[in-house]
């Protein structure tokens, strides 16, 4: 699904990713963990195609094609979804209106017929039921007046609607209390399915208690310094990142 090779990325002239290699096979859930400033969010943004992130070396292969030159909306239509760490507020635009346009943009790209208002509403209701979320979400302006937990849930709902091949979840657990974390994690688990790959980017291990990954990568100072099974996350939780930072600096 996703094959990152020797990826170097600069932000405002400063090198943040310094040769990342990562393979995410179809249908698997991987976690990328790392301390603050290790380049986790940069990895998420560069996968989604944010203009401020410059790929200086290496490449990102997504289903065999190089992503690097693609516009953000092309990537989205090709099935890449980013759940934002800080979901953006857009006054006056309802979730329903927004998602209908987004879903239809993706469907059109896939050569599927666009949904009319009734079909869209049915789909949205189904997904909300699946995620056990309130229908009021649809008529609210995007993330306006949402609590931190509501914003993250809204990201998961959007993911369900857009039906991506590859979902990148950027710090989806940050700022959530235990109840909200549970709801979000249940949502993610409900959306796990064969053929869909998920990359969970996180500082802490706690989300991984609920969404158990197939594989864990540790990102330190712009490089993957260690990869392993889910027990690696527990090890990090216990020992912290200190040793790995030291090793990376050496």
């Amino acid at each position: 699904m996703l094959n990152i090779e020797n990826l170097h990325v600069e932000v405002e002239g400063k090198e943040i990713l310094r040769g990342v290699d990562l393979v995410l096979p179809a249908g698997e859930v991987h976690a990328v963990m790392g301390p603050n400033g290790s380049g986790k969010s940069t990895l998420a943004h560069v996968l989604a195609g944010h203009e401020g992130y410059n790929v200086t070396q290496g490449r990102i292969l997504y289903r065999g094609h190089d992503l690097t030159a693609m516009e953000p909306e092309e990537r989205a239509r090709e099935g890449i979804f980013l759940a934002f760490q800080y979901p953006v507020e857009i006054p006056g635009v309802t979730n329903a209106n927004f998602l209908k346009s987004a879903v239809n943009a993706v469907r059109k790209h896939r050569g599927e017929p666009e949904l009319d208002a009734i079909e869209f509403l049915k789909l949205a209701r189904d997904k909300l039921a699946l995620l056990r979320m309130d229908e009021k979400l649809l008529s609210r302006a995007i993330n306006i007046g949402f609590s931190g937990g509501e914003k993250k849930r809204n990201e998961i709902f959007q993911m369900a609607m857009l039906d991506p091949q590859l979902a990148v979840l950027d710090e989806t657990d940050s700022g959530l209390d235990i109840d909200a974390l549970q709801v979000v994690a249940d949502g993610i688990n409900a959306l796990r399915r064969p053929g869909r790959s998920i990359l969970m980017i996180t500082h802490y291990q706690r989300l991984l208690n609920y969404v158990v990954p197939d594989w864990v990568h540790v990102l330190v100072r712009g490089r993957i310094v260690k990869s392993g099974g889910k027990e690696l996350a527990q090890e990090l939780e216990a020992k912290g990142y200190a040793d790995m930072i030291k090793a990376a600096a050496a």
Binding site: A48, G49, H50, E51, E71, P72, E73, R75, A76, R77, F81, L82, F84, P87, V88, E89, I90, F98, L99, S101, A102, V103, A105, V106, H109, Q158, L162
Partner: peptide
């Protein structure tokens, strides 16, 4: 950030 968010969901810049 608003534009990027919309584009990440598949909308063109114009949309």
């Amino acid at each position: 950030d608003q534009l990027f968010y919309c584009r990440q969901r598949g909308l063109s810049e114009e949309e």
